[in-house]
Simulated scan of single mutants.
Amino acid sequence: MSHHIVVGYTHTKSGKDAVALGARLARATGAVLDLVMVLPTDSGTLVPPDAAFDGYLRDQAMKWLAAGAKKIPAGVEHAEHVGVAESYAEGLSTAAAELGASLIVVGAANGGPRGHHRVGSTAAALLHSADVPVALAPAGERKTDATAALSRITVAIGTRPGAESLIDSAVTGATLTGAPVRMVSLVTVDLPSSVDTGVIRIAGAAHAEDVLAQAREALPEAVAVDVLVGRGESVEDAVRDLDWLPGEVVLVGSSRLAQPKHIFLGSTATKMLHELPVPMIVIPRRAAGAEA
């Protein structure tokens, strides 16, 4: 049975970035790619809806979707859909549920520098409510070769328990794509310069290495894994200190504020986004007692 990837499409550079990332992930995993454009409802207006105008909007949306689909490489099964909802995020979540999608892909907000993330309103809403993983395409992702293999899956492991969903996703991704896995813990000290952080940093690094070792043991022996600790005076410093490959993706978990089976972008992942030059995929928090 095929799995599906939903791409939130807009007829902009950001929409093209999302299609490029979605196409690369679909090709690597054998998924069906569903391009979805969401039209607003008329529920907030006093003017009766005009059927002719609604028809025009749908026709135009389908033309834009067809233009976006031209960038999808041959061999990737895809379809185009027009939805109607009060918000773009709601429409994408509804489409993902109806299609049984395992991932929603969105682009950066317009105006961000190439190779960086800029979270817009749609991405922000999804990152605090979606019940499936959400992939964020950095600005300029459309310049990446959509037929290139996934070069590496980096998993950002925190220093607290609760990485099971991340481990499961990494194993699934590595199994489907053949990509190696890199497990990273970001050890930073965000304290005033007057505080002596030497002992704190050493203790934090030792704890991070213990957590990484436990996470590594949870992965099958067949999965190629590198394990390392990223260090810096801040999360941003630690991200800059790491090397990043073209075609790589990063998996991060949801904050403990997330409801079970939902995602909630935490403060560390938000700081990572400021410096991250590759796509990020945010994984929902596992429900208590849930099986993989």
Rank of each mutant, 00 (worst) to 15 (best):
A287V: 09
A222W: 12
D168W: 12
L126F: 00
K63Y: 04
A292G: 11
G120W: 05
I202H: 09
W244S: 13
L176R: 08
G112H: 06
V47Q: 12
V171H: 10
L219A: 04
P260A: 03
G162N: 03
L103T: 08
G107I: 05
E90G: 03
A179K: 01
A203L: 11
G44M: 08
L228E: 15
A139T: 14
I283T: 07
S267Q: 14
T147C: 10
L242D: 02
R256I: 15
A124H: 02
R201S: 12
S14Q: 14
I202N: 12
P279F: 06
G253Y: 02
I283Q: 10
A69T: 14
G111E: 13
A258E: 07
V84T: 15
E86V: 01
P180Y: 07
V36R: 02
G83L: 06
D54H: 14
H116Y: 10
V134R: 00
L46F: 09
D196H: 04
K16V: 13
E209A: 13
L245P: 07
V195P: 00
L39V: 08
G266C: 11
G289F: 01
A130M: 04
S165Y: 06
L65A: 06
V252Q: 05
G158W: 04
R216F: 02
H11Q: 12
T122M: 02
E77R: 14
G68H: 13
E275R: 05
T188S: 02
L265D: 01
S2V: 11
L219R: 03
M1N: 12
L245W: 11
G253C: 05
H3Y: 06
